[in-house]
């Protein structure tokens, strides 16, 4: 129950937080508003409140966006990245899922040791071995190839562990029932285990997507050819071009963020749960 004094305090808090959030978001608001402007307009508005207000809706409102999508390869980079993400989601679920399932449910030699190894691998920072990955890919002549980019990214100790933690609580009797229904182990994995674990499959897919979409270092090492670039590397290439205006730059970074916003709004529950659980679950 709120006393009258508490009510007033609460409203003050709301107002303070709204002000704080607007201040906090000023770079984003500025980005959105000015992504629709010409550079002359941006400069002209800079010292006024108009800096945070989009221009009036007219025929040239979307010019920056249109020129990015038609005059540069940015759309192609986005599609590239979507394709890489799709491939890595599928391969990642198969490879890491199968491994997690094996660690959870299949008896094989040294299973407990392997689990420990996977957990130890989780603490190794990827930056440590990225030089060697680069060396491998370069020596194999796989620089500037999709395979060279994708291969080292498939296996992921975190995802193996995550799958294992979920699969271990699947009831064994369903596997036994499926055995009596003439279901082979591999068929069981694809037609039973994965559909029964939709939630973790979704979580892994979402995080794989975000990882691929936002990754910078590895694609910047592997890709130099402009045909294969990911969106983030493409962004760098486009902004480095002297012909690119500030408004166009802001339009590119808005465009690149849209898919992520879509993903977040569809899977916010999984993501927030994932974020919160990193802080609250053991190990």
């Amino acid at each position: 129950m709120l006393t009258k004094r508490n009510k007033i305090a609460n409203w003050i808090l709301v107002v303070v937080l709204i002000a704080l959030s607007l201040f906090f978001l000023f770079p984003v608001i500025w980005m959105l508003a000015n992504s629709f402007k010409t550079d002359a307009q941006i400069t002209a508005d800079m010292n006024t409140a108009a800096a945070f207000i989009p221009p009036v809706l007219n025929g040239s409102f979307f010019d920056n966006y249109i020129s990015i999508l038609t005059n540069t390869s940015f759309l192609r980079y986005m599609l590239n990245t979507l394709f890489y993400a799709a491939v890595l989601i599928v391969l990642g679920i198969i490879v890491n899922g199968l491994a997690g399932y094996a660690l959870a449910k299949i008896k094989f030699p040294f299973r407990e040791r392997w689990l420990l190894v996977i957990m130890l691998l989780m603490i190794v920072p990827m930056e440590t071995i990225i030089t060697i990955h680069f060396l491998f890919v370069a020596k194999l002549g796989l620089l500037n190839t999709v395979i060279g980019y994708i291969l080292p990214m498939i296996v992921n100790p975190f995802n193996i562990f995550l799958f294992r933690q979920v699969f271990i609580s699947l009831p064994d009797d369903i596997y036994e029932a499926a055995q009596l229904d003439y279901c082979s182990p591999i068929k069981y994995f694809f037609t039973m285990v994965l559909p029964m674990s939709k939630s973790v499959v979704a979580t892994v897919s979402v995080f794989t997507f975000l990882n691929v979409w936002n990754d910078y270092l590895w694609p910047s090492l592997v890709f130099t050819s402009s045909d294969l670039l990911t969106a983030q590397i493409g962004l760098n290439a486009i902004t480095a071009n002297d012909n690119t205006t500030m408004g166009q730059t802001l339009a590119v970074i808005t465009l690149i963020t849209i898919p992520v916003i879509i993903i977040y709004s569809f899977f916010s529950k999984q993501i927030v749960e994932g974020v919160v659980s990193t802080g609250s679950k053991e190990g």
């Binding site: 009596l180 229904d181 939709k198």
Partner: peptide
Amino acid sequence: APRDRGISMVFQNYALYPHMTVEKNISYG
């Protein structure tokens, strides 16, 4: 192997396939 023993089994916790309809559960085998 269990499936070649000519048996069928009813499990304590039913062990129904949770993502399949009644009809699919029954016809799966």
